[in-house]
Design a protein around this nucleic acid. Structure first.
Lengths: 197, 197, 197, 197
DNA sequence: GATGAATGAGAATTCATTCAT
DNA sequence: AATGAATGAATTCTCATTCAT
């Protein structure tokens, strides 16, 4: 049915198909058969590469978190002033980058957040990322002069998650392309007037 | 096993058990048998009162939305100035009110948001509520002098959803009791300095 | 497909079908589908009455052990002298009683012994029965004057199991109807000459 | 993964791994992958050397039977009197000989006996061995003066199998090292008093 | 000889839903 | 209204076996 391929290639292919299906129908309805069909593979082969369905979810979560972290790190490194860094953070997390293939990421991430509610392993990875993100925001805000960076970091993190969630569950409420601007506005308002100069 | 009871009582009992189970294990693992057990009923009886499992979900969503709307309306009516109304909104949605049993479960709402991603009927109710909430925020912010009430309303709505989501999926990140204050802070910053008087 | 029946009736029916299939094809090939077919039921119904396949095995083991113990107790109670009791034990365990419907028991028991090798729960029940049987033999032999009842009890127990095993795995080696006589011969030889009077 | 090796070496290696796994988990759970892992080989290579899984079982049974027969023949040849030959038989079959790796696993033989119940090919080899063993006992007992060597041979054979079975399924019931003595005792009791001289 | 990706035919188990009682 | 036995379709996962490389 399919050509031979290396494990790495197949795993990536399966995770990719899983993301697509996950966004469409959610975790539980993302059956192995459906994932396999989406990937053009047989169910048996999916299980040859992933012992359990949860492993595919784990691989996806790892991939998304790794990708986000890379975007964030890269954006921070490229920014020159503390205030620029705050802006860069907002952009890295929310700007719709046409070059980025993972437009499906917000929806996938929303589904993952839902799974985190009930799967300990998913929650662990999810919460670790949330904490890291919050801490990154806190550092950037402190450097930029936020008088209460801890509170600002929680606001920023919740806003990112909330905007992702609204995009997935109530499309139309968030005007496409406006998300990063909204977050930037909230964060700018926290910084001292001179800091924006 | 149980006494005869009216349909209304039984339906409420089932919806209540469903919320509990939903929070614990998520929608798909909330089997009819489990819901029935949690309610102290038999599976057959659950289906006597609800033709399909999705109907129970629908009843829960309706109940939560109705409850939230009542809280919001009541809070708005009780506030005297425009700025008070903005504060009252934040409190109604995020303050932990021990009397409001249906707000004590951000997890249930998070699960519903996840289901909204894939069930048209749930999404319809969810999105209708989100739009109503956004519009309520927009009105309150406009009255209080927000120069861009539309943007502020989206920020507020996303923040509410994001704080619910974090509470459910990454417990510990949002300090209990602080949520309403965070939202108030963000909204106050949008209003003209004199508006707080 | 089938009439309604009580849980007790259905469970007995399933265990019975399981014994038949177990004897024919062994534990692993005794699939739920096969058991269901043999019982004239649907696979779903089998799982409605037994959560796991191992539970059916457990019920069968319990049933056989209970039945054997009843036969043994009854035989011992009916015998009048110590030597008669030894004979009665041999007969209760090995005589082919045309009235006893469980001619399939020896083969089933052999299969259970094999499972005991690898399933802890089966081994526990199996070993408990073996120990009880050995102790019963030891008591009877001591009363009848065996100079080393402990050794005699192990010999008797091993012989019973060995004769069951040969009957199942190498039919024809043990002449039908001769098993009880063989065991009686071995045990009689252990007893003092006067004891037989 | 491994060096090239001759077919004979590989087959022996695979059969050896199979015995280990068989004892641990039984025939059905002894998957090709597991056997391969135990042998330090790949699944594909196992099938290169054995067309079917059953063939590995066949090779193991052949090996064990051949080894037992050699031990028996050797023991008989070394004994000088008819009564010694009876003793030697018991020892060859049941004495724990550290040098005989293929006798150290009564569990393997018990598993094979269980398989013999349902696989015609295994039953053929198993039954052939049982018959040969019984005949060997019959000859030895007749020579030593047993008045009913046929019955004695069945008793001896069943006792050997039963002691193996108990050792595998109810460890602790048979005192280690006592098995051969028990069998010798039973057989000695059958022989005329003067025969032991 | 050796590898390991691929297949496909089951396997146990789950569960919403039905329905006779 | 209530019960709980019954159904059947679906689901995850397993594994002997094949075969291109």
């Amino acid at each position: 049915m399919v050509d031979r391929a290396s494990t790495d290639v197949r795993r990536a292919q399966i995770v990719d198909a899983f993301r697509t299906v996950l966004v469409d129908v959610g975790y539980d309805a993302a059956t192995i058969a459906r994932i396999a069909r989406a990937a053009g593979l047989t169910p048996g082969l999916v299980h040859y590469h992933f012992a359990h369905k949860a492993e595919i979810l784990g691989a996806l979560v790892d991939g998304i978190v790794t990708g986000l972290r890379a975007r964030v790190d890269h954006a921070l490194a490229a920014a020159s002033t503390p205030v620029d860094r705050v802006d860069a953070l907002a952009d890295a997390l929310l700007a719709v980058d046409p070059a980025a293939a993972d437009l499906s990421t917000p929806s996938a991430w929303a589904a993952i957040g839902a799974e985190a509610t009930r799967r300990d392993d998913v929650r662990a990875v999810y919460a670790r990322w949330i904490v890291a993100l919050r801490d990154t925001f806190a550092d950037a805000l402190r450097d930029a002069g936020d008088p209460d960076p801890a509170a600002g970091a929680v606001v920023a993190t919740a806003l990112v998650e909330g905007l992702y969630g609204l995009a997935a569950a109530a499309p139309g409420v968030v005007v496409p392309g406006s998300a990063a601007g909204l977050l930037r506005g909230v964060l700018r308002a926290r910084l001292p007037a001179g800091g924006a100069r």
